[in-house]
Design a binder for these strands. Structure first.
Length: 287
RNA sequence: GGCGUGGUAGCCAAUCGGUUAGGCAGCGGUCUGCAAAAUCGCUUAGACCGGUUCGACUCCGGUCCACGCCU
């Protein structure tokens, strides 16, 4: 098989993506582009398992620790940055390696995003409406009238409903009509994909070990500092797994053992969601 | 040893003589600008034995277990 022009390594959290990516980068003269919505942020390195200084010295990593908590990460921006990184790496004759577990970002990047209109200000305005009962009701009625199909589909899901209305308002047509559907193939030629899918028991063990490791690395301390620096007031970064659980532990709600259990459980649930996403949303990557 | 209270699913926890408790965990989905998010669906009961009853997780008796009090 010829050398790929792009290598993709993905899988659920704690499956060993990063170490494989590191090995492949050294073997194939590559650079790693993180596909991870949370590794984007500075200040939550331990909890989001960002590459260590030593690892970053071995291989160049892109899109890690580039944002402050105040920045709202989003797919569109991510795709833009990742595309540029891919082009940049390739132009220097190296192999770009996409490594990470944010399936949503990976799908958008590789499958392509339709050119739907967007207006963050309008979205924010609609979102604010949702905070009052009357506003929510009005918005639902408006949506049911303007775009019944999208309303039926997303009526329980605030964010998607708002986005659907945003698109409907801006484009004059339904978001469902404007979307081209499940991508058939990867937009980048000559891409090789590796899915790491450990067996359930194996993955559970790996998650448990990795959680222990994170705590040993000083995760709680990191969390304390991140919280002091406004993690919970951030638009997106506060969603990083574990930090709110640690905060509750620090507030005395439960002991350390319980914290560990809760974090492991939450991590497992996350891994399962990732698995489902890979199976059904990223199947276009495996021929 | 006596008295009392209680034993409900992996865990927590209600109700009830006939009709889905619920929550958590678990499992399966959804996913096009917050995705480590949000959201939908499904599954698992009545400690044990006997009795009453058309019908018992529910009422009665016994056994076992747990907790509390007394001796």
């Amino acid at each position: 098989m010829q050398k790929p022009s792009l290598l993709v390594i993905t899988g659920p959290t704690a499956s060993g993506k990063s170490s494989l990516a590191l090995k492949e980068a050294e073997r194939l003269d590559g650079e790693i582009i993180s596909v991870d919505s949370m590794q984007l942020y500075r200040g939550i390195e331990i909890g989001t398992a960002q590459p260590t200084a030593e690892e970053r010295a071995r291989v160049v990593h892109h899109l890690v620790g580039i944002y402050d908590f105040s920045v709202r990460a989003e797919v569109f921006t991510f795709c833009d940055l990742a595309e540029k990184a891919i082009a940049d790496i390739q132009s220097r004759g190296k192999l770009p390696i996409l490594a990470g577990g944010t399936g949503f970002y990976l799908k958008a990047l590789l499958g392509g995003l339709d050119d739907l209109p967007a207006d963050p200000a309008l979205r924010q305005e609609l979102d604010a409406l949702y905070d009052s009962d009357e506003g929510e009701k009005a918005l639902h009625e408006r949506m049911a009238f303007l775009d019944p199909a999208a309303f039926e589909r997303w009526k329980n899901c605030r964010r998607r409903l708002i986005r659907a209305l945003e698109v409907r308002l801006l484009a004059g047509r339904s978001i469902t009509e404007l979307q081209s559907g499940q991508p058939e193939k990867c937009r980048f030629p000559n891409t090789k994909s590796i899915f790491i899918m450990p067996e359930t028991e194996d993955l559970k063990k790996r998650i448990s070990l990795r959680c222990d490791h994170m705590f040993e690395q000083g995760w709680i301390d990191e969390a304390r500092q991140a919280i002091a620096r406004g993690l919970f007031d951030s638009p997106t970064a506060h969603q990083a797994l574990g930090y709110s659980l640690i905060a509750r532990h620090l507030a005395g709600e439960f002991d350390f053992e319980t914290l560990k259990d809760l974090v492991e459980t939450a991590t497992w649930q996350f891994a399962r969601r990732q698995r489902t996403y890979f199976r059904h949303q990223l199947d276009f990557l495996c021929p």
